[in-house]
Design a protein around this nucleic acid. Structure first.
Length: 423
RNA sequence: GUGACCAUAGCUCAACAGGCAGAGCACCUGGUUGUGGCCCAGGAGGUUACGGGUUCAAGCCCCGUUGGUCACCCCA
């Protein structure tokens, strides 16, 4: 058997990079405009970091999907499954709580989860992640949401909407969850097996069920936004007020939840055109207790994670074309050994002057070199032979029109730069 | 972890009811001197994912494995 990528892993090929470069450039540019600073935590961290402070059920699930290893010195380490934990760790480790508030950070890189591959879900995927730390203002929630929205919007995505919910805080949520449990327990006979289990493991999760029976029950189920404390309610109202002021489309979705319990108040997703079972392009929310959970001071935070692989898949599906990648516009052809040396020199000279250029390798016939030039889709083929060398000149062939001109060597670079719109 | 569908050349796909494994695209060479694209001729490329079984005979039928796709579970 030949070698192939591991299950759930894939190569990102040159053709994919038409999209990748565009998306990544756009993301970085946007982060700059919003005033976020880039950081890049290591891909490997202590396993405990990723399991910190989670309720038992969650920790088991998480552990199962974690790529964990024992290092040669016996340390328990894992490939990061998310950015947030690493960013929190870096925040505390480097004393960022002493930086002027808020601290706004972003990171781009691969994340790893040992899960069964599915549409838009891989074992390795690349995420663009932004966090805003040390600020409670609902305008901070808005900013994170807007950052995500702008990325999709400026890439050309259509029909974008926010799905928005508030799941309260440690003050008001327990009472709400009790009400929710009570409601479902009253209808236990109509609740499918899957959701009965959810109800006992992670009650909020029942809200985003796919069971038709449960969906019907949810029509009359208590909603978290109706059970917020005064502070949470005010926060939510301000946020929706800002969204309205900016005319950003949003839908309050009382069924929107997160799987982990460190989220407070705001949870959101951006939805676009269908992507199989997942129509969420990205998800984010507020997590005021996270910094504390890795040993730092109590610090509010909001963040979002944006899957780049998913963006690229979606762009392909919707026929959004990225700008073409730059490619060499010149190929230098040659005839004879003396000319070959000159050709090598010329290519090097061109590149030094910012002209992307290719050398015809080997010593094949001019005919075959022209064939290569044609396939490389260059704009000009430069020919060096005995005649040209004798005159210290180069024959320039326009590969589109077939027109040929003899250009004196000293004038060549500027002649090309003018025509190729370089500098 | 559970389930469904799928796997033939680099890519997209053919191959009657089980009877010699093919096409298009891409690739390489040639069509005589220092000129590409179009055209023409030729070439290379396969253990039909892998392992077993049934059969005179398996790409095709049966079992298993691996991988892919999709959904469930889960979702940082």
């Amino acid at each position: 058997m030949r070698f192939q990528t591991l299950k759930g892993f894939h190569d990102i090929l040159p053709d994919d990079f038409r999209y990748w470069r565009h998306v990544l450039n756009m993301a970085v540019d946007l982060a700059d405009r919003f005033g976020y600073l880039q950081l890049s935590p290591p891909i490997l961290e202590e396993t405990r970091l990723f399991l910190r402070g989670l309720q038992e059920g969650s920790a088991v699930v998480l552990d199962k999907e974690l790529y964990s290893f024992e290092d040669k010195d016996g340390a328990q380490i894992s490939l990061r499954p998310e950015f947030t934990a690493s960013v929190m760790r870096a925040y505390v480790e480097h004393g960022m709580h002493t930086w002027p508030k808020p601290v706004k950070l972003f990171a781009i890189g691969p994340l790893f989860r040992h899960e069964k591959p599915q549409a838009g879900r891989f074992r390795q995927h690349v995420q663009f992640n932004a966090e805003l730390l040390g600020e409670e203002d609902p305008a901070a929630d808005l900013e994170i949401m807007q950052l995500a929205y702008s990325l999709y919007d400026e890439l050309g995505f259509q029909e974008l909407t926010f799905q928005l919910n508030s799941i309260g805080c440690p003050n008001c949520r327990p009472a709400y969850i009790e009400k929710l449990i009570a409601y479902f327990e009253a209808h236990l006979d109509r609740l499918p097996e899957v959701d009965r289990r959810r109800l006992s493991v992670n009650p909020l999760r029942v809200l985003d069920t796919k069971e038709p029976e449960t969906l019907a029950l949810l029509e009359n189920a208590p909603r978290s936004i109706d059970h917020l404390c005064n502070e949470c309610d005010a926060h939510f109202r301000s946020l929706t007020g800002y969204l309205q002021a900016l005319e950003l489309p949003y839908v309050v979705n009382p069924r929107l939840v997160r799987g982990f319990d460190y989220y407070v108040r705001t949870v959101f997703e951006v939805w676009g055109a269908e992507l199989g079972a997942q129509n969420a392009l990205c998800g984010g929310g507020r997590y005021d207790g996270l910094v504390e959970s890795v040993g730092g001071p109590k610090t509010p935070g909001v963040g979002v994670g944006i899957g780049i692989d998913r963006i690229v898949i979606s762009m392909r599906g919707q026929g959004i074309e990225p700008p073409p990648l730059p490619h060499p516009l010149i190929m230098v052809l040659h005839r004879g050994d003396a000319a070959k040396v000159e050709a090598v020199r010329l290519v090097s000279d061109l590149r030094r002057n910012g002209v992307p250029a290719l050398l015809a390798f080997g010593k094949r016939s001019l005919k075959s070199q022209f064939k290569s030039a044609n396939r490389a889709r260059v704009r000009f083929a430069l020919v060096l032979g005995e005649d040209e060398i004798a005159q210290n000149a180069v024959t320039v062939r326009d590969m589109e029109s077939g027109e040929q001109t003899l250009i004196a060597r000293p004038k060549l670079i500027s002649w090309l730069q003018a025509r190729l719109d370089i500098r």
